[in-house]
Design a protein around this nucleic acid. Structure first.
Lengths: 216, 216
DNA sequence: CTATGCATATTATTTAATTAACAAATTACT
DNA sequence: AGTAATTTGTTAATTAAATAATATGCATAG
């Protein structure tokens, strides 16, 4: 029961990409797609695509391919995008505001209920109806509103402290933009976005073109 | 000559992490480190760390370990961080401003010379001495100033158009934040930051804890 | 209603990545 | 100085991932 066949991380990281392309197809009104066509779009091999999808069940039909709408909705369920998540953002600087402003997240079911900051100049300001509150109120806000996701967009010096508030408040997942490792108890899911690491990789490839293979 | 032993992407993506930890050690005044200690810090196995580093040469010493300052500087060179890159940002919304504001990039040698937008309300405003200009001037600005890196923080609808301006202007690398695949000629390095994919992965793991293994 | 071709699901194979093992070099201790 | 304890570089073994192959089931055309 413990070690049921877990889906590998490499597969999981590809799912959002499939989802995005299926969404594009849906918007174009295309309702049928083969793994071969998906391969051309995504750059992954057809074989890999079929294997990836079969981790979660046989969504296709021999001789036909995949139904775009069905596969899109199935992947949405697998990714948990059929639910609505309540979230808060710690750090109301440009990055925090950028995330609060981004419609794409809202549309995918990630609702930002409040931003928090310690800068008195920011407190009280609203970003698209979302109020910036004092970080001292964050813990009680999270508890009272049943917030599940905490987003860290503070400088790295504050990241751990914020993470601990999240932990105390019962947050289930953390989306961390600070270039620091945060330590919280194991059952909290932490997804890091290390922008500097991405930039450094760009820099590396610019200096070592031989190692570069384009991946979308 | 063509297929000299290329370093695998998975290795390259770990280098920035090593670099970051070494930087931390440097700031702490620690001048010696073993692969085993690095393993504890980073979560990678000691064996993997030694193998990764040996792709680029033997930086360590048997019985001693690695000299922090030396390894840090070597990795910096490998990543191309010993140079200064001139860059511009297309899209002066919150995200573009966040990047322009972020000292960390500046410190790593990524200099933002200008932001560009089509919104007349933004044009002329300065972010930390960096002026926002009309996107119509972008091509000539890039050419005149020898800009090497173009950063895309526009909505996805404009991303391809911006990428084409970058291509025409002789940009060498593109850091793309728009959730869209951009098509440019093969010798331009493209590094994508797909924030929605990261968020979807977080969502997946929150719904499928069994598949989650923390990776820093 | 049947035959042909298409495209999946699934298994086998190959390739890549990770981990383990160990000889050689160095440090640190007695 | 001599010996035990470290710790690397490197090769070998193992595990994981990607690709290829193939049998099966549907769709479509006549």
């Amino acid at each position: 029961m413990e070690k049921e066949n877990r889906v590998s991380i490499t597969v999981i990281r590809r799912l959002p990409k499939y989802y995005r392309y299926l969404n594009d197809l849906l918007n174009k009104g295309i309702n049928r797609i083969s793994s071969q066509e998906l391969s051309k779009m995504t750059g992954f091999t057809a074989s890999q695509i079929r294997q990836d999808l079969n981790n979660f069940g046989g969504f296709g039909q021999q001789g036909y391919g995949y139904n775009v709408e069905d596969l899109h909705s199935q992947l949405g369920k697998i990714l948990g995008l059929d639910k609505v998540y309540k979230s808060v953002i710690a750090g109301a600087g440009n990055l925090g505001q950028a995330i609060a402003n981004y419609r794409g997240f809202q549309d995918a079911g990630f609702e930002v209920l409040s931003l928090f900051d310690k800068n008195p100049k920011l407190i009280g300001i609203k970003i698209r109806d979302i109020e910036i509150r004092d970080v001292d109120e964050m813990e009680s806000f999270i508890k009272e509103n049943g917030i599940e996701i905490g987003i860290i967009t503070t400088p790295k010096e504050s990241a751990q402290m914020i993470a601990e508030i999240f932990e105390r408040s019962g947050i289930k997942g953390i989306w961390n933009f600070a270039p620091a490792d945060i330590k919280v108890k194991e059952d909290i899911i932490v997804e890091n976005v290390y922008l500097n690491e991405s930039l450094f990789a760009l820099s590396y490839f610019m200096n070592n073109k031989k190692d570069y293979v384009r991946r979308d």
